[in-house]
Design a binder for these strands. Structure first.
Lengths: 282, 282
DNA sequence: TTCTTTCCATGCAAAAATGCATGAACAAAA
DNA sequence: TTTTGTTCATGCATTTTTGCATGGAAAGAA
């Protein structure tokens, strides 16, 4: 049995089709089909049923799925261990953060880092989905909660203050919020503390626009669509916006960073962590 | 990183040279060298130091050795799981036993099995070293002790009686053994119960020949070199030998068989186990 | 020292794997 | 029904990998 084919087996099992699996492992569909056939021939058993809607694991395939997954985990650990020992200040560094945090908070620091270490390529992924640190989809991730994945080192980076913003020149909202329109997070984020805060301070206000994208909220707010609770780092970047003080500021939120412990000694990561700590020292 | 190259890494780490590793994985020395180079290039780090006496792991290589070994374990488990589901009565069946046990005790049963199941290839390994059931170096092993490896199913097969043998026509040993010469196990097997038994019954006898090979002992005994304690299954096979009764028979020994639990459902193994149980029923 | 053995690197030809293009099968949409 | 969009299999040219043969370096034996 060719060990590399186990990786292909996993990809097909997860994706359900040769083409999709090929994209995952970076090969072509015919190759995937041929390697799978070779694997099944070597094992003497069929791992998939070729059904009309894709490749479905046979009992045999399902029986070895767990082994294949553990094999993958060890392969990933193998690579992480080694990456953690790279002492050069070169190579790639992949960060994952929410969109506005990446653009407005991180970029200044990353620019400085890039200037200091020209042989390090920084890749910033701003994406709603959570990248896996264990699979090394990202080397460093930023979130608004502490990380609870195993083997991930989690640290509080900074406390991000929030404020209510309105378009410069627009009238100040009435006390109960009647007549005021709101720009807020998506319904999916209903539980967010700033939504609660808004309900308390402007109970009569109506919702004009929602989005899962803070920057889109800021732009809509700048267009005068409504008032919005925004991270100050974002709000202050728009000259059209003006802070509105309702006496009690909206709740601030912590931002955490996390990285896999195997990468603790990765020098380029360490350098960036130091710079981040320095720039965001409270 | 190519997963298959991890296997090559392991082989080189264990063997210490490209040529030896090539023999283990069934490839050639140049290929091993090139694959290793490719692996190191992909990882960006050297895994071995090329010293005058072979390939020695660097710190980096040592750091990932454990991951590579666990990866191998999972690969082996993958294959075992699948083998355990093969329902056909064909394919290979590899047995490991001590030399005389294999030749004199097993062969009759194996011959019968081979006749019954012509599409199963039985391979009998008689070798001093212990084959690993976990690595599937053998599907079924016979030993004189219960197996204590994890995940191995161990069962007592039979009790093998032993007896003292001398060449037919040679004089019976004196009561204290003075003047009698002995053919026994190697010094390395000093603690064997038959040695103790000999010391007790023929304390004055001297040792003429030792070997770790019971059959060699039987042949030397048949040549008249000395008396020997042999398994009766072996002793009775030599017409030149005659049983010598000293009143109290030498201790008999149990023979155990063991196989990996993942192979419990392997039909060809089950058939052989049934036949063995039948033929050796007490 | 010289001879022998062992081991790794490399050139080159043969073999194998890969990717592209295409065709067939099938399901969903028009 | 026809059309459209997916998905897998296969032929073929190309690229890549492999094995063989050879040479050189180093260590041990004579």
């Amino acid at each position: 049995m060719e060990w590399s084919d186990v990786r292909i087996f996993l990809a097909i099992a997860r994706e359900g089709s040769l083409g999709a699996a090929a994209r995952v492992v970076g090969q072509t569909q015919p190759t995937m089909g041929r390697r799978l056939r070779a694997l099944e021939a070597a094992l003497g058993q069929a791992l998939f049923q070729r059904t009309t809607d894709g490749f479905v694991l046979t009992d045999e395939g399902a029986a070895v799925m767990a082994s294949a997954e553990r094999m993958e985990e060890e392969a990933l650990a193998f690579e992480r261990r080694l990456a953690g020992r790279e002492s050069t200040l070169s190579g790639q560094l992949r960060l994952a953060a929410s969109d506005w945090f990446g653009s407005y908070v991180l970029t200044p620091v990353l620019a400085e880092f890039a200037r200091r270490h020209p042989s390090v390529t920084v890749e910033l992924l701003t994406d709603a989905r959570l990248y896996s640190l264990a699979r090394r989809e990202a080397d460093l991730a930023f979130r608004i909660k502490a990380f609870d994945e195993p083997d991930v080192i989690s640290r509080r980076l900074l406390r991000m203050p929030y404020a209510l913003y309105a378009r410069r020149g627009d009238p100040r909202p009435r006390k109960d919020g009647r007549g005021t329109r709101l720009v807020t997070m998506n319904a999916a984020f209903g539980g967010m503390p700033d939504v609660t805060w808004l309900k308390k301070h402007l109970p009569q206000a109506s919702v004009a626009f929602t989005s899962n994208n803070r920057e889109a909220q800021a732009r809509m707010c700048a267009e005068g669509i409504g008032v919005a609770v925004l991270p100050t780092a974002l709000g202050e970047a728009f000259p059209e916006l003006r802070r509105v003080d309702l006496g009690d500021p909206p709740p601030s939120r912590d931002t955490w960073l996390g990285y896999h412990k195997d990468l603790k000694r990765l020098n380029r990561l360490r350098s960036l962590l130091e710079l981040l700590a320095e720039r965001f020292a409270e």
